[in-house]
Structure formats: C-alpha cells, structure tokens
C-alpha cells in the first residue's frame, strides 16, 4: 500500500484507509457528468484501482453501453493495467451491450433477452466466483442514459434493473459504479430516475467544467460527496471534497483550486 501513489480522488473515496476489506464494498457510486466535460476518466481510474494487484480478490463486471472493449483496453493499458490479461484471469468480465436492445416485458417474461436475462447472467457470474471473491465484485455501468435508450425509454425497466443490482450490493456486498449525464435531467421538473439513483447512492462524484470556461491546464472540477466515509471514525458526517483535475494519458492530476503553478 505504501508504494501506491494516492491522489485526492482516492482519498475522497476513502481508498486510503485499507485495501481489505475493500473500502467500496457494498457501496453505490454514481458519477455524473455533462456534455462539456466527460466523466469517463473517473471510471477508468476506478477500473485501474479496483483491479490493482494490491487487492487481488476484486473482480469487475463491466456493462459497456457506450464504448467497445478495445477502447477501454487501450485507455486502461496506458494507465498500467492490462484488461485482456485480467479478463483471462477471470477478474474482469466485459458485457458488450453496444448493440443489445432490452425490449419490454413481453420478451423479458419468456426469459429471452432484456434486463431480466442480463441480471441472471450477472448473478450467475458472481455466483461462480470463488467464495472469498464474491463480496469483492464490482458492477460498472458506463452509461445509464444509454441504458434508458436500450430499454426504449421505459423508466420502470431500468429502475427495476437498478434495484436488482442494488440488492446484489446487500446480498453479496458487491459495489455498484455507474456513470450518468446530469444535464439530460436538469431541465426536467421531476427527474425520477436521477432522484432515485441519487437516493441509492453512497458516493456521488460530480464532474463539471470550470465556470470560467475551457482551460488547457485545468480540465474541470470534481465534487465528491461521500456519505459513508466517516463511519470508520465513528461519526456519520457527510464529507464533501472539491478539487480540480487535469486528465492525461497515463493518469489524472488532482489538485485543490489555485494550488497549481
């Protein structure tokens, strides 16, 4: 653990405390971004961190709705993690959902395709893991808004699926990491989907552009709201951290506003 370079995001997520049990166990993490600033890099960071050799029991189930495997492989490889090797080791399960449709219940009930089938597949994957790895599984969804499109706008199906995924966090102690686009919902009067997801969330990571516009040195700001971190220390206060970031090919620089020269 000493040789790991911890950054501000890791600290805000509580990853600095210990690696076993995995700090994100049973937690729901929601990343929110917008058109101007993509939050994908947070997923890449978490991918790398979760699969790092320091925590060999972790596994990831990745539901890819927006990008292909080769895209992620190239990016995460530059961060120093080989997804192909991890996939062969049985630590990384990639579900390519790019072309999948999750039609409504008529087909779902018969058990062919749709979210129920996807859920069963995930459950089976987790169940097949070695005993001591089951509570170290992480489910990642790279774009929830595309999940809605795949479900043809049927909010209930997506929400049901998310609730099922959420039960996995309590049943197995899995963690759930999702990405969604906040600006889609900001113009709605009562964005049910967003509100429900935020309610379930333990750690909310908001990725926003700088209010002052684009800059080459600072790509945007992160707000991390961690609802559970202080349980470790005995108090139950929410912890909010706020910092800037700059994305690079081989990592991300995090820094407090104004501390960069």
């Amino acid at each position: 653990m000493e040789n790991r370079a911890l950054n501000l995001l890791d600290e805000a997520l509580g990853l600095d405390h210990q690696t076993d049990p995995w700090p994100l166990c049973g937690k729901v993490v929601l990343v929110e971004d917008c058109v101007e600033t993509s939050g994908c890099f947070v997923l890449h960071q978490l991918l790398k961190r979760t699969l790092s050799p320091q925590s060999p029991n972790n596994t990831i189930i990745f539901l890819a709705f927006s990008h292909s495997f080769s895209h992620y492989d190239r990016i995460v490889r530059k961060l120093g993690c080989n997804l192909v090797a991890q996939r062969e080791n049985g630590r990384f399960f990639f579900f390519d959902m790019l072309k999948q449709l999750c039609p409504d219940e008529k087909e779902g009930k018969t058990g062919k395709g749709g979210f129920p089938a996807l859920y069963r597949k995930m459950q089976k994957t987790i169940g097949a893991l070695p005993e001591n790895n089951q509570n170290h599984a992480t489910i990642m969804i790279d774009d929830m808004s595309l999940m809605e499109v795949a479900a043809h706008g049927s909010l209930e199906h997506v929400l049901d699926f998310m609730h099922y995924c959420h039960t996995l966090t309590s049943e197995f102690g899995c963690s759930l990491i999702t990405l969604n686009h906040e600006d889609i919902y900001s113009s709605m009067e009562r964005p049910t989907f967003m509100l429900q997801m935020e309610y379930l969330t333990d750690v909310l990571i908001k990725v926003e552009p700088l209010a002052t516009g684009l800059a080459a040195d600072v790509h945007g700001q992160l707000t991390v709201l961690n609802r559970g971190i202080c349980k470790v220390k005995g108090s139950s206060k929410n912890k909010i951290s706020n910092f800037h970031f700059k994305v690079k090919e081989n990592g991300v620089d995090y820094f407090y506003p104004g501390t960069r020269t």
Partner: peptide
C-alpha cells in the same frame, strides 16, 4: 462543442 475521443481519455482543449 465536442471532439471525438476514441481510444483516449484526454479531452482536447
């Protein structure tokens, strides 16, 4: 508004 970022995570400013 947006520039294609395929195979990379670095935004183009």
């Amino acid at each position: 508004h947006k520039i294609a970022r395929i195979n990379t995570q670095v935004p183009m400013i």
